[in-house]
């Protein structure tokens, strides 16, 4: 009996902790947005962080996109050939990438490549008292350190997701048309007939923007909130990747329900 009560008490404590953290994160987001004026008045800070978050994530995102697209085409062929519908390959590859895989996989890659780096950097600055030093110099570390990284993440991820989808479609094209020998005209034509720019492409972009906000907030919050020790920073970095992944997948489900519910495309 007691064991069961303890178990419930454990769940209660965990839930309370989780809700409290969510509250802190929300308050932190408000503080970051309030301090963002400085970031946009001083683009140099933002450009530096765009380089770290965006440019340095390019290689992994482009490579992954290309290979995901190629694998999609190979696997799709296996299925479509049974129904004699291999012309629909373009549709399959493009819709999978634009609606789901682009935003989601790019988001996951971004969280592990750039998000963890942001957390580690901010956490380390906290550990080595660099943030405290700024505060004592009457410089707001949220405006100077956190906000540029947050906005760089928010700007980078939608671009990275679009690049992922583009490279993926190109990879699918390479496999479907150049390797398997499906007619190129049918590949592009069917794709263009089936993919709607407003419905599919825009919704995919909206997804990637929502993910960008979520991952960037998690990354900067975990860094700023990290326990200022070596262990604390490493734990925070891990939390960034895990929480981001969970957040992306949960939000993706919710968004998909609202965006694509009960729709059949022509």
């Amino acid at each position: 009996m007691n064991a069961i009560l303890n178990w419930f008490a454990g769940i209660g404590v965990t839930t309370r902790g989780a809700i409290a953290r969510l509250g802190f994160a929300t308050r932190f987001l408000v503080a970051v947005v309030k301090a963002s004026g400085t970031t946009f008045l001083r683009p140099r800070l933002l450009i530096r962080e765009l380089y770290h978050a965006g440019v340095l994530s390019l290689v992994i995102v482009l490579m992954s996109g290309l290979f995901v697209g190629m694998v999609l085409a190979l696997q799709g062929y296996e299925t479509l050939v049974r129904f004699g519908a291999t012309e629909a390959m373009g549709v399959l590859v493009a819709l999978s990438l634009v609606r789901e895989l682009g935003p989601v996989v790019a988001g996951l890659l971004f969280a592990s490549r750039a998000g963890s780096a942001i957390t580690a950097e901010i956490g380390l600055m906290k550990t080595t008292e660099q943030l405290a030093a700024m505060e004592v110099m009457a410089v707001n570390p949220i405006a100077r350190v956190v906000a540029p990284r947050f906005w760089a993440g928010v700007i980078s991820l939608p671009f990275l997701a679009a690049l992922f989808s583009t490279l993926g479609i190109y990879g699918g094209y390479l496999v479907a048309v150049k390797l398997i020998g499906i007619d190129g005209g049918a590949f592009w034509g069917q794709m263009q007939a089936a993919v709607d720019w407003r419905y599919d492409v825009m919704n995919g972009v909206i997804k990637s923007i929502v993910f960008a906000f979520a991952v960037s907030l998690i990354a900067v919050f975990e860094g700023y909130d990290a326990t200022p020790t070596a262990e604390g920073v490493s734990a925070a970095t891990t939390r960034t990747v895990v929480t981001s992944a969970l957040a992306i997948l949960t939000i993706d489900f919710v968004l998909t329900v609202f965006m694509f519910r009960g729709s059949v495309n022509g």
Binding site: E121, L124, M125, T128, E129, Q130, A132, A133, E135, V136, M137, A138, V139, R144
Partner: peptide, 30 residues
């Protein structure tokens, strides 16, 4: 705080800036 200077235990230098930029930091900011 602007009239106050504090030297932290291990210096707390900004690791992503050069020595010059570190010293220039408070001047640039204020």
């Amino acid at each position: 705080r602007r009239r106050l200077g504090m030297l932290f235990q291990f210096g707390a230098l900004f690791t992503d800036m050069t020595v010059f930029e570190n010293v220039a930091f408070p001047i640039r900011e204020h």
